[in-house]
Amino acid sequence: MRYKSVVTMHTVNRMQTYGWPLVIMLIAIAFTIAIAIGLTVHSVSDAEGVEGMNNGMRFNGAIFTVLGPIVMLGFISMGQYFPLALGLGLTRREYVLGTSLVFLGYAVVFTAIVLIGKSIELATDGYGLRVRFFDVAYVGFGPLWQTAIQTFLIAMSAMLVGAAFISGYFRWRQTFIWSFFITVAVVGLAVAILSMRSFEFATWFGSLFALDWWAYMTTLGVVAVVAGVAWLVLVRRTQLR
């Protein structure tokens, strides 16, 4: 039952756990509305202009003020709390179990926040200003159940990838970092060259960004599973120095 100590470790700093993400989110919402008011007053003078503003906000990145802290939790869990947990005598298994429960809890809470925010936006037609914060492409335009699945998978994938990445760093140190970035650079360069030299490849690669919703969700699920397995394997073999 000592995994409960891991949960407590992750949540003991209440401001870091609950406060700052919500504060940042509220500031971002206010900032988004302020921008919308400014655009409406200074630039938009008819219904067509307002509709254009509303459609443009489909890709409003303010939602990442909420997603950003979630992404960082995976890195923090291994970089900050894992060494502390082992130093306190907790086993790796207990740490993984407790941290997994924390990840699950964060994902559920984050999903609930997005669902509530999106519901309010839809009910009030963008707070009466036709603005968007939660009803954006990154968490889906479909019904609320689709938004719930997409948001949950994004949160879990981000945290598990972050935890796996730091575990890889602990295992292989600078070799892992250099290998990762070199691999990304080589793959990116190869894709760019092939896209310029082959119209068929460019067409195929572009089609990857036009997959249907279920294909994207399947991809997110695979990423979460692969990252989770990698994290479990690496945690067992990670040696702190």
Score class of each variant (00 low, 15 high):
W204A: 13
A158I: 00
S43P: 01
F59G: 05
T8M: 13
R237Q: 09
E51C: 00
A210N: 15
H10V: 03
V233F: 14
T183Y: 02
I177K: 00
V102D: 06
Y3P: 07
W178Y: 15
Q80L: 13
E51D: 12
V226Y: 10
I193R: 07
A192P: 08
S195N: 06
T203M: 13
M72T: 10
F82I: 01
A192F: 07
F181V: 07
M78C: 05
N60E: 03
V71R: 02
R173H: 15
R236K: 15
A137S: 11
Q239P: 02
L129M: 12
R197Q: 14
F141P: 04
F133N: 05
A224F: 10
G221R: 06
K4A: 08
F141T: 00
E94V: 08
Y106R: 11
Y95G: 10
S43A: 09
V71E: 01
A85H: 05
T91K: 10
V161Y: 01
I113K: 03
I113E: 11
I166T: 15
G142M: 01
S157E: 04
Q146M: 13
A230Y: 08
Q80G: 00
V187D: 04
T218N: 02
A123W: 13
T218M: 10
V41R: 14
A28N: 03
I70G: 00
F82Q: 04
Y106G: 01
Y216C: 00
N55D: 02
R93M: 07
G61W: 08
V6L: 13
V108P: 11
I35D: 11
S179I: 08
T183A: 11
A163T: 10
L84D: 02
Y81E: 06
